[in-house]
Design a protein around this nucleic acid. Structure first.
Lengths: 141, 141
DNA sequence: TTCTGCTGTGCTACTGTGTTGCATCAGACT
DNA sequence: AGTCTGATGCAACACAGTAGCACAGCAGAA
């Protein structure tokens, strides 16, 4: 299992024709394994087992993954970025942020419909829809 | 003009039966004058003219205003909180964040419609809808 | 108006997230 | 294996937000 996501990660970088460094494929592997947006700290914890990677390198690799289209960045409700591997549909899906455990989930299955109109002169670029609540793991019963 | 928002601010605090301190009414006055969500730094700048107020006090007064229902907190795209005076309809409106000048606007006139369904076991509490783009002041022409 | 007690304020110091500069190391190609 | 470019690690920094504690100012009583 781990082997397969590791190979997926390496293959994704090779496909771009970019240098396959340890930091890159290990970080991407963690993102693949998670399947949901992870905070910087969560990624760091996920990497710890196989030997820690420097904080700064982690930030730089994440920026690189985003620039290369392998990851995307979401903002949480706790003023920290979350990073997740890019799946087929990256755009237009909402995120759910659990106020109890802090975990974030992609609501990819759900296509939100937002009806909006802007004041004159405003130019729209992107919409973020985020939900707050408690996730299934954090329900009292 | 300034006189009237100042009096509005003092009156709002008096109505609660709470202590009318300089920090409280001056900060609330700045929020009333702005009419849009302000960052901590913007509020600080707005206060500077009449004598600066300590950073920490500013945070505490803002927390107090929120607790008392006189202000609400919005998150921007730059990982900082924005604070705005509470108007008639506080809930359910979207926010617009200008990627050029960083200013945030409330889209109170617009009632967004979001159609969403959650995975089993998830309990929903609140939705945030935020738009990114360029505001009227920052258009090229 | 002055006194007094409570609580709000300011100062200092700290945490955590994210960034910058620079020397060193390692991946890819020959 | 050798070389070169660019990625990594380290140290230091920037900035938002928070905590503890002593002092000051607001509001009610004398």
């Amino acid at each position: 299992m781990t082997q397969s996501t590791q190979e997926r990660a390496r293959a994704a970088i090779i496909d771009l024709g970019e240098r396959v460094t340890e930091a890159r494929w290990r970080i991407l592997e963690v993102l693949f394994d998670a399947g949901r947006p992870l905070s910087h700290a969560e990624i760091g914890a996920g990497l710890a087992a196989g030997g820690a990677i420097d904080r700064v390198t982690l930030y730089r690799v994440l920026d690189w993954l985003i620039a290369k289209g392998l990851a995307h960045r979401v903002e949480g409700h706790d003023r920290t970025w979350r990073f997740s591997a890019v799946s087929n549909d990256t755009h237009g899906h909402a995120h759910f942020h659990c106020t109890h455990c802090g975990k974030m989930y992609c609501l990819t299955a759900i296509q939100p419909t937002v009806v909006l109109a802007l004041p004159r002169g405003f130019r729209f670029e992107e919409t973020d829809i985020s939900l707050r609540g408690t996730c299934a793991d954090c329900q009292p019963h």
